[in-house]
């Protein structure tokens, strides 16, 4: 046992390999848990039972769905670009794992700590758009193409309010290091308590919904207009990877919100936040945020494309700009 630990400590590449395998496991586990929660909560909102058949309260349902997807044939449409068509789900999934590596689950529990962690995460998160564009384009289907185009325009528009709202936190802490940002919020003074940063928090949540293509901004896969949008032609685990990546992105969105605005692994009222308790606090904040997103999804109709753009350019961006100015002013003053 000691030898193995020594081995791991000597070879950093091996350490990274293990970390990535664990992270892939976490991404899949997250998809399973979130898929189950989403179905259950949607069912309760609609006053149904949801999955009930397999396992107690149907908790095995998502695992079996995953097994079913693995067993299905990967159909490539006749005139599709075979290479890109196969590549797209991977391209969608890989950045998610890479971002998970940089998330600080607690003070001591993280894959890598980067000085520019925030920039890294945002950069990685934008690769998702490429994946959707490639998926839509390579399937050679008009509906997929619509979905891809919408997704690109939507993501370009919503990156800006996300960056601007996060920048106001960066201004306050003067750091891109996620660990430092979390440490700056120790005690009960989470950033969401300050009024200017609270506005940034709300803007981030709305824009994050759009960034992760969740309802009411799920235009790339608007099923009543585009049947299934960019993944219309995907079957089997190609489709499965898109679903896993969607939940992974949701997790990332919520975890950035909780790191930047809700104090990350800090417990409320300065409660103990050791390695494990910190992870507990962090995960509970993330899950609360994700549950809110699910609740929102099953309540609202979908917005139209131009309205989505209006929301970004006419409301979110001006507000976040003004907010950023106010924050900069306050930081200089104090």
């Amino acid at each position: 046992m000691q030898q193995i630990i020594d081995l791991i400590q000597t070879y950093s590449l091996l350490r990274m390999l293990i970390a990535f395998l664990v992270l892939i496991g976490i991404v899949f586990l997250n998809a399973i848990v979130m898929g189950y929660l989403e179905r259950k909560i949607a069912a309760r909102i609609q006053r149904r039972w949801g999955p009930m058949e397999i396992g107690v309260q149907g908790w095995l349902q998502m695992i079996l769905d995953g097994v079913k997807m693995l067993a299905k044939q990967l159909i490539v449409p006749r005139d599709a670009d075979r290479f890109l068509f196969r590549l797209a789900p991977l391209l969608c999934f890989t950045p998610v794992v890479m971002i998970f590596a940089a998330l600080p689950f607690s003070k001591a529990l993280y894959g890598i700590n980067l000085h520019i962690g925030l920039i890294y995460i945002i950069a990685m998160a934008s690769i998702n758009v490429f994946a959707i564009l490639i998926a839509g384009w390579s399937s050679n289907n008009k509906y997929s193409m619509f979905g891809a185009m919408r997704s690109v325009a939507q993501n370009i528009a919503y990156e800006i309010p996300i960056l601007l709202s996060l920048l106001s936190v960066v201004l306050t802490t003067a750091s891109f290091d996620l660990q430092k940002i979390v440490e700056a919020q120790s005690g009960w003074l989470w950033f969401a308590v300050y009024p200017n940063l609270f506005v940034a928090f709300v803007i981030y949540l709305i824009a994050g919904c759009a960034e992760t293509n969740r309802a009411p901004f799920d235009l790339p896969e608007a099923e009543s207009e585009l049947t299934a949008g960019f993944h219309t032609e995907y079957s089997g685990f190609g489709f499965g990877l898109f679903a896993v990546a969607e939940y992974g992105n949701l997790f990332i969105m919520a975890s950035i919100a909780s790191i930047m605005f809700l104090g990350g692994w800090n417990g409320p009222f300065g409660l103990a936040s050791g390695p494990l308790m910190g992870a507990f606090w962090f995960l509970s904040k993330v899950f609360v945020l994700m549950l809110v997103m699910i609740w929102v999804r099953w309540t609202y109709p979908r917005v139209r494309f131009d309205q989505l753009m209006n929301l970004a350019w006419k409301y979110l961006i001006p507000f976040s700009l003004v907010n950023l100015l106010i924050t900069a002013f306050l930081v200089k003053m104090i």
Partner: peptide, 11 residues
């Protein structure tokens, strides 16, 4: 929708 979560299931 929140009220509906609290209410009993009808199916």
């Amino acid at each position: 929708t929140f009220k509906a979560i609290i209410k009993p299931v009808v199916t």
